[in-house]
Design a protein around this nucleic acid. Structure first.
Lengths: 406, 406
DNA sequence: GACGTTTGTAGACAACTATGACAAACATCG
DNA sequence: CGATGTTTGTCATAGTTGTCTACAAACGTC
């Protein structure tokens, strides 16, 4: 049940509303905020005063734009005061970044790692080392663009994460089952920052929804094809989490009962038909070739290699099958494809559109835009940081009360 | 974007909250409302005073229950003052009912109709005649349980409805395409009541969520198998409508690329594998046998007829395939099956559970309850009425201002 | 019948936004 | 260049709402 509204919640809600608006929209004039929110000038003045005092936004002197009337000062997100630590755990790499409140990646360090260091314990050690280096950079003088305070830590993981207790239920490519990363990591880092874990595709989805190809969408379906195929659904800017935090696992949509058996134990999952390995296999390349093989494949496709084109044909067919189901169930206003799927989209788009037109039975007039993600690899970084910013956007005053030099 | 909070919206929100609570929970003591909402006794007193004045709830004298302390009066929904007209358009039948605010069906008239009267024009004529009769009953003296004011009209249709303009995009079994039922119907009835149209499965889903097997769910997946297979998703009591109002069309989830071609033009839709016709066909009965054949089939299954049991086996298999996908994408806390699927559920449940356990790859510990709907045919009636009550639960004061004898 | 407990009521209080008047900052026009 | 009209920020005031506190009412228990 939604909780009851109190008078004080109004302030909290409006504070969050304005902050969220400026974050999504980017720098905007004070009067534009008045227009967008419907609140009065006095109310906005009060809210912006508080947000400025909390050092979450800054007001710049107005820039006369040639229209009559007194010009309105421009409000932007303050990128100097608070930021978040974004940690990305991938199969062959670990990355630690600092993201400022406006969604900019300020610092980022990536380090590849051998397959034998995939355990949770090794991962934590490696993360701690990178965090140390990033923190040095942050503290070092001369770097002025860096936020002075970290609000929290967001971790992206290629696996299923239970929202309730931050436990990684299963991460097939890492070989993790019911793994607790957040607890030991917090202990190791020992900086008291709150840690939240999220599924990489879900985080990418939220980032694209906030700052990328999903801006303005009321129901975005996000599909990310990396080694596996993941997905996320964002409704009016709010990620669909599901009952246990598992929503969006589109990779294991059954599409082909006669298909190959999947890592998950089932048969004919979407992932086994449209994932990286399927694409490489059909093109006659090594299934486990990784990034190199993918680049090779894309080059072949550019050259018009028949085997590669045939593989893309199959890809389009199976993409259409899965997308049809998802579109029928969710009725999104757009589909955003990221990772490998975003890269092959230009090649498969025409056939994909044709197949979708055949398979979707109603309202064929309206074509659902299928777009490539626009943030690239940054999406997951920004999305992970959003895990830490979430509390802030929910209740700015409460969170900032815990920051030292507020 | 969510709109800004104002002081007056607090009142509106809390008024709606309390009304919604009492509607969902049923009669409850005033102190229970205080506990459930977290508001103070004074605040609840004010809100209940207003709701009582609006004649939406009634307070009965407290019934001492043996516990110490002053007993609290019992608050229940006032079923006497406002109601809604629920109209169900089905293939072989039309029904018009009056539903009171507490979700009780007060009056209901059903009339079967021949296949040749399926056109929109005929449908409107038939509805008007039934509404006339229902209205007579309502006005007739002696019927004291009937609400004195109708707030609006909700219409359930077995087809895809575009939320924005109330247009029935397509209703395959009625042969309708881009049909406007609401406009002409409003003109014919001429009573000025607002008409809203909804998909039958969506409405059933909402009703089950409010008063049936979905009570207390945070993400319910509802699947209704009548002639076709429809579905609905209800998140925290709010139906998922999608961008255009099409969400929940699970019947056309592609599950079998080698399957039969579907009415929708695609191939291997879930509906063609688990729908009524598939079940009858596999049992060796006439596909188009309708209700009679279904009853025959269930009788055969009860007797242990091998062909019927084999058909149920196949049914369970394909149910599992579709459900796996939906569960992976949506992560519901329960699945509610209605119509024919609800009736065959007891037969297929064991095998369905086994197949789901194999196919679902993670968190296998937690079994997702699969329940039969508990409202039966009443679900759609109640759900249709909810289309009319929706505005009330959203902003009670505004809506009641338009009711005459408020 | 006294006591403790729970609950409804009433008034003072605090928090918030709305309203309206006024001053400041701009463009335009003569 | 100055007068005029427009837009905007600021300030004090008013209105609405829920909270808090004290008190009375209604119950069970001893």
């Amino acid at each position: 049940m939604q909780s009851a509204a109190r008078a004080s919640q109004v302030r909290r809600s409006n504070l969050a509303l304005v902050l969220d608006l400026v974050r999504r929209h980017g720098p905007m004039s004070r009067s534009a905020i008045v227009a967008a929110t419907g609140l009065t000038r006095s109310a906005i003045a009060g809210l912006l005063g508080e947000l400025t005092e909390l050092r979450l936004v800054v007001e710049s002197p107005p820039a006369p734009d040639g229209s009559p009337g007194r010009p309105s000062p421009v409000v932007s997100v303050d990128s100097q005061h608070v930021g978040a630590l974004a940690i990305e755990v991938m199969v062959d790499e670990i990355a630690v970044s600092i993201v400022s409140l406006d969604g900019a990646i300020v610092t980022s360090i990536r380090r590849s790692r051998p397959r034998r260091r995939l355990s949770v314990r090794h991962t934590i050690t490696d993360i701690a080392a990178l965090v140390e280096r990033v923190d040095e950079q942050r503290r070092s003088v001369g770097r002025s663009g860096t936020p002075r305070n970290l609000l929290g830590i967001g971790v992206s993981v290629p696996g299923v994460v239970r929202g309730a207790d931050n436990i990684i239920v299963v991460a097939p490519n890492l070989g993790w089952v019911e793994a607790d990363l957040a607890g030991p990591l917090a202990e190791t880092l020992g900086n008291g920052l709150a840690i939240r874990i999220g599924n990489d595709a879900d985080l990418g989805a939220q980032a694209e929804s906030l700052f990328g190809a999903g801006v303005g969408s009321d129901l975005m379906l996000f599909i990310s094809g990396e080694v596996g195929v993941g997905g996320g659904v964002v409704i009016d800017g709010v990620p669909l989490v599901g009952h246990s935090g598992f929503a969006g696992e589109v990779g294991h949509l059954p599409v082909n009962p006669d298909g190959r058996s999947c890592r998950c134990g089932a048969t004919g999952c979407w992932e086994t038909e449209v994932g990286e390995q399927a694409l490489l296999r059909r093109a006659g390349l090594a299934e486990d070739g990784g990034t190199l093989a993918v680049e090779r494949f894309l080059a072949l496709a550019d050259e018009g290699n028949p085997l590669a084109l045939a593989a893309l044909n199959e890809e389009a067919r199976w993409l259409a099958v899965g997308l049809t189901g998802l579109i029928n169930v969710l009725d999104p206003d757009r589909v955003v494809m990221a990772g490998l799927l975003g890269r092959v989209l230009p090649y498969v788009k025409p056939q994909l559109d044709r197949e979708l037109a055949i398979r979707r039975f109603r309202d064929a007039q309206r074509e659902i835009p299928i777009l490539a993600a626009s943030l690239g690899a940054a999406a997951i970084t920004v999305g992970a940081a959003e895990l830490a910013f979430g509390a802030l956007v929910d209740d700015p005053a409460r969170v900032m009360a815990t920051v030292p030099s507020a």
